[in-house]
Every structure is written in structure tokens, then in C-alpha cells.
Amino acid sequence: MRIAGIVVLALLLALPAYALDGQQLLKQIDRNLNPESYESYRKLINIEPDGKRKEFTLYTVKKGTDKVASLFLAPASDKGRTTLRLGENMWLLIPNVGKPVRITSLQSVVGGIFNNSDILQLDYNAEYNVEKVEEKGNDYLLHLKAKNRTVAYDRVRILADKAKMLPRLIECLTEAGMLIKTLHFKDIKNFGGILRPATVETDSPLYKGYKSVMLYAKLKKRSFKDELFTLNGMGSIDSLR
């Protein structure tokens, strides 16, 4: 009888694991990383194998699941560059060139490991379906598949802390399963009530010895008008600061 009771209890405890809703987990991870609408400052550091660095500072605003814009604040050679993403549409405004031009998600406006979709990241839930969830000790391992072919990485694996529901590591892969880059999430900080990693380090087997680091600051919830996320609004991002 005691054995039967233990078996039933074990089954009951195991039940939540089988009832895991991957998409819901992914939504939770997205929300813990960022509020749905927010502003933040980021510093991107490209590090070469010899230790040489190049740094970019960006101001980013995001609204809902499909609108995000970033303004380059530094270095001087890139100051004023603005990128806008509206769903799968992406544009780059270079002050010298003067007009927004369409860019593609796989291009890179900063060079190095980060491409445009990394800089203008939308919610993972908006771009990916969860195919499978595995439990790995204290972590969940989510296997994601892009919802369509316009998404930069066909497959993504997220290793997320069960307790904090925050990613420890994200792997971006091709359709054939080749690893393109790995994002390491570190240094959890409190941004006015939002507890999230303040440092994301990225490496890639395609760029051996190179590393890119993204530092977050002043991340906070904020609402914006839709009209800000238009070609006409791109020149006005700085006025929000």
C-alpha cells in the first residue's frame, strides 16, 4: 500500500513536467527578459582575438511584439544611425545618406558577430514555435523552430533557469542544425523591478577567437505611440531620451 502511495505521489509530481506548455514557457522567458514595451541603453563590444575592442552605444525602444528601433549614440562615426524593425521589415537610416534604406536581417550594421536581427531582437515567442521542452536538472531546454523563413535563425535552443525563468544560454542554429552563435546570459541585475541579465556574451564557431558583449543599462517599462515606429518617426528617436 505504501509503495502504491509512493508511486501515485511520484506520478503526481511528474505530471507538471508532461503538462509543460512550451509556448507559455517561452512567453514567460520573453517577459522576464524585457517588458513588452520598454526603453533601454545597450553597449555592444566587439572583441578581436588580440584583445582589440570596438564599442557601440545604442538607445533602444520596443513596443509590442513586432516594433523595435535603435539609435546609435557612439562612436562618433556611427552616431545618429537608426535602425527600425516592423515585423520582418527592417530599415537603416544613415544620417549622411539621409534616407532610410531597407536592410536584411542577416546583414550587420556593426560588423563582428552581431547581425541586424540580434540588435533588433523581437520576442522569441513572436518568431518561434516551441517544438520540444526537456528538463535538465535545474533548467529547461527549449527547442525552437522559426515560424517562417524570414526569421534569421531557423532553429534556436534556449537553456533557461527553472526558478528564475531566465535564459542561461541561447544557441542559434541553421536549418541543418549547424551552430551559428551562442549567447551566454550573465550578471543578473535589478532594473527598477525587472530582474534580468545585464550582460550577454556572444561567440561563434564561424568567428573563432572573436567575442561580442552586450551590456544593458537603464532598462525600463515605457509606452510609445505606433507612429514612432515608422520611416518618418526614425529621425525622432533621440527626442524620446
Binding site: 520582418e88 521589415n89 527592417m90 534604406v101 531597407r102 536592410i103 536584411t104 536581417s105 542577416l106 546583414q107 536581427s117 523563413r149 524570414t150 526569421v151 534569421a152
Partner: peptide, 11 residues
């Protein structure tokens, strides 16, 4: 102008 794919723009 339109992005036909992640790496292909037509204008």
C-alpha cells in the same frame, strides 16, 4: 521597396 527574403531586397 520590399524584402523578399532575409537576404534579398527588391526596389
Amino acid at each position: 521597396s520590399r524584402n523578399l527574403k532575409t537576404n534579398f531586397e527588391l526596389h
